[in-house]
Amino acid sequence: MEIREPELPRRLLLTERAALMPLLRRTPEELFSRRTACPDWNVRQVLAHCGAALARIVEGRLEQAVFSPESNAADVAERDAWPLRKVLDELDWGMAEAGVAIAAREDGLLDTVALGEWVHAGDVRDAFGEPGAYGGDSTDSAPTLIGVASRRRGNPLVHATLPGRDAALVLGVGGDGRPPAQLTADAATLVRLCTGRPLKSSLYELSGAREEELYIYD
């Protein structure tokens, strides 16, 4: 049985909030129209989605269809008329408050929402041309949640060797007689690989599995 770390998503959100919000507050508004790794959304729309998702968690508005593509698109469209400052204020508030609500869920089903917020923060930094888009102080927490997401999705078993970790990070699940795949990468490359973000194949070594089998999102 997997041991859950209920405070891990909260730490991830708070650490990312401290790094991301000052960047967003000082960035000229015209740059928020830049395209991102999310095909249909620019920076502003990614941030609107992030803030809306966290607001739903804090306010307990978690109806059955929430976080579906249709629900996400509706939340973003609702915020199209908002001034940028209001979009950023909602995100700031959500990153500060949602971790408590996530930790309170004994089933842990919202834990990986925090991971999604962190990945989207990387998308934003990448669009802005910031170095280390999917790195920073949160890279100690994010891989653990990637492991959780990969097991919930039922991905093939992968043993990932990352710098600074004494033991391999276990991704996916076994039980089908297939030997574990082997991955060697740094944490930022792991994030890009498992979330389908652009990367260079020279930055990692993967054997026994295909790239797309590591994806944690559809």
Score class of each variant (00 low, 15 high):
L20I: 09
L183P: 05
Y134V: 06
I3H: 06
I216V: 14
V119P: 07
A52C: 02
L203R: 11
L12N: 04
W118S: 08
G164Q: 08
L169C: 07
R4N: 08
A181L: 12
M95G: 02
I102P: 08
G60C: 10
L193D: 15
V119H: 07
R153Q: 12
A96I: 02
G135Q: 03
G177H: 05
D40N: 02
I57D: 04
R192C: 12
A73Q: 13
R17F: 00
E63C: 13
L206H: 08
D107L: 07
M1I: 04
D218M: 00
A188Y: 04
R4G: 10
G108L: 03
R34C: 07
I216W: 05
V46I: 11
A127I: 13
A187Y: 08
R105D: 15
D80W: 11
T144G: 08
R61W: 04
G164K: 09
E63S: 15
Q45T: 01
L115V: 02
D176S: 10
S201A: 15
G164N: 04
S33W: 00
L190Q: 03
G129D: 12
L109D: 15
K86A: 14
L145N: 08
R26P: 01
L171I: 11
Q64R: 11
Y204Q: 01
D126A: 11
P22Q: 01
L206W: 06
P22T: 02
V58Y: 02
P83E: 15
R105F: 01
L193V: 14
G177A: 09
G147F: 11
L203E: 14
A48F: 03
L171G: 10
S33I: 02
G174R: 06
E212R: 13
V124R: 03
D218Q: 09
A104R: 10
L115W: 01
S68M: 09
A121N: 04
G136V: 11
L24D: 08
L62Q: 06
N72S: 14
E106K: 07
E117P: 00
N42Q: 11
G196S: 10
E5P: 04
D75E: 11
V46F: 05
P39I: 14
G116F: 03
L20H: 03
F32S: 14
R35K: 12
F128D: 02
R105E: 15
A52W: 07
E29R: 07
A149D: 10
T144E: 14
I102A: 06
R153L: 11
L115T: 02
C50P: 00
L145G: 06
R152P: 00
S68C: 07
W82L: 13
D107K: 04
I3N: 03
A168G: 01
A73S: 08
P28W: 06
L206T: 14
A19M: 12
P39H: 08
W41K: 05
V148T: 06
